[in-house]
């Protein structure tokens, strides 16, 4: 790297270029670490449910239904900028017991003259409820393609696990619809 370095001090016994090489490797490793933060963050979010992300499809299991508790689940939808689709939940809210499976429907319509691809991004509030939302089917798992003028009902089948903390009485499930044309698969 550098042939003109002063000679290392005899007494300290290190070779500067060795130290420098180690530090360069450390710097490169930290650059990699920056990228490693991306999957680490996802894993961390999935475990802790922080930031309200819900996980992918689960196998439907019949579980204990806690009929002593009723939780109100609200559905809200948002269109991100530049997403002209009509997008709404067909029911504003449902009441359900933890452990029971429920199906709800959302409606999307592409009013434009072009075929478009949309991606719904889920978020749950309070965030501590997120890890207790179990979905077997959700339109948010995949991109949704709608032809010009096409409308579609989209199902969501989910339950809240019976372990959901007892102080949670209302859960808000939010879906934001993005134009995913740039990321179409």
């Amino acid at each position: 790297m550098n042939s003109n370095s002063p000679q290392p001090d005899e007494q300290s016994g290190h070779k500067p270029n060795n130290t420098a090489l180690k530090l360069v490797i450390a710097a490169v490793a930290m650059f990699g670490f920056g990228f490693a933060l991306v999957p680490l963050y996802d894993i961390f979010c999935e475990i802790t449910g922080i930031n309200g992300k819900t996980g992918g499809p689960v196998e439907r299991v019949e579980q204990w239904v806690d009929t002593s508790r009723t939780i109100t689940v609200q559905f809200i939808t948002t269109n991100n900028a530049g997403m002209p689709w009509e997008f709404e939940a067909l029911q504003e809210e449902v009441e359900m017991h933890p452990g029971a499976w429920t199906q709800v429907k959302f409606w999307a319509l592409n009013p434009t003259e072009n075929d478009m691809v949309g991606q719904a991004v889920p978020s749950v509030s309070p965030s501590e409820a997120a890890e207790h939302v179990q979905k077997t089917e959700c339109f948010c798992f995949d991109q949704q393609t709608l032809k010009a003028g096409e409308g579609r009902e989209m199902p969501l089948i989910f339950s809240l696990s019976p372990e959901i903390p007892s102080h949670v009485k209302k859960v808000t499930m939010s879906y934001t619809l993005f134009d995913a044309g740039a990321f179409a698969k």
Partner: peptide, 23 residues
């Protein structure tokens, strides 16, 4: 040495998002 590469990483991710279709 520990954190400047992380900054380089984050702007590289931005660059890729802006120009190379990553997300």
């Amino acid at each position: 040495v520990a954190v400047m590469p992380v900054l380089a990483g984050v702007v590289t991710m931005m660059l890729m998002d802006i120009h190379y279709g990553t997300a």
